[in-house]
Amino acid sequence: MKRNLKTAIAAIAVVLAASTAFAEYGRVPVNGIEPSVLRIDDDKFLGAKVDGAYGLVDANHAEFKLSSIYGVPVILVLSYYGCDGACATTNKSLKEKLGAITRLKAGKDYRVLTASFDKDDDAAKVRMFGEMTGIGGESTPGWKTAVLKRKEDIKTLTDGVGFKFFWSKRDNVFTHTNVYIVLTPEGRVHRYLYASLATGFDIEAAIAEARFGQIGAATPLRDLADLYTIACYSYNYKEGRYTLNYPLIIAGGSLTSGFLLVGLALFVYKRKARR
C-alpha cells in the first residue's frame, strides 16, 4: 500500500517535471518576434495620434487624405514597393489572414492601408506592386495601396509610430520592422501586431478592441460579439498575441459556485429533514 503510494507520487512528479519542461520549450515565440533593434517600444507609441492630414497618392495617381479612411479601425502596413520578398509576403499573408475572418467585413468594419516608406516609390511602383500581389484592386475592397505625397512626411509618419527601417548597402535592401499597426477609428495607434506572429484571430481581436466603446455607431449585436472577444481574450505583451483571459474565466466560475452553494444547502437540508 505504502509502496503504491510512493510509486504514484513518483509518477506524478515525473509527469509534472515533463509538463514543466514542455512549458519551457513548448511555446517559443522568439522566432516570431522581431529582433530587438527593430522591435517597437509599445509603451512610447501606443495611443499616439497619426495625423489625418497626411496626403497620399494611389496607383491611379488619385490623391486622398489619410483621414478619409478613418472612422473605422485601420490596419496600417508600412512597406516599400521595390522590395522583392518580405514586403510582398507581409501584405499577402495579411490578405490571407483577413480573408479568414468572416465576422468582420473589409471596408465596412475596418480598412487597410499599405503605404511606402521608400522616398523613391511612386504611383507607378504602387501599380506594379498591385499587379504582383493582387492587392489594392477590386479583389481587395477597403484596402488602399499608396505612397505619401510629400516625401518629407515619411520620416514624421514613421517616427510618429515608432516604425524603424534602414538601408542595408551590403544587401541592397531595406531592413525594417514587419508589423501591422492597428489604428483606432480616430487614428490613434492601438496595437502593434508582428507580421510573422499575428494570426487572423489576433487581428480580429485588435480590431474589436480598437473600435470598442464607440457610442452610437455600433449595433448591439456587433458590440456583443466584440465584447465577447475582448472579455475572453487579452493582449499578451510577452507573447505578442491575444491569449485567454484566465482571471475572468476563473471569476466566472467562482460566481456560479455561489449559486451552487445555495442550491446545495437547500438540498442537504431537505434530505436531512426527510430522514
Partner: peptide, 17 residues
C-alpha cells in the same frame, strides 16, 4: 445573504489570484 453568497466567491478568487 443571497447577495453575500453570490458575490463573496468572486472576491475570494480575486485575492487568491
Amino acid at each position: 445573504f443571497i447577495v453575500q453568497l453570490i458575490f463573496v466567491p468572486v472576491l475570494g478568487t480575486a485575492v487568491t489570484m
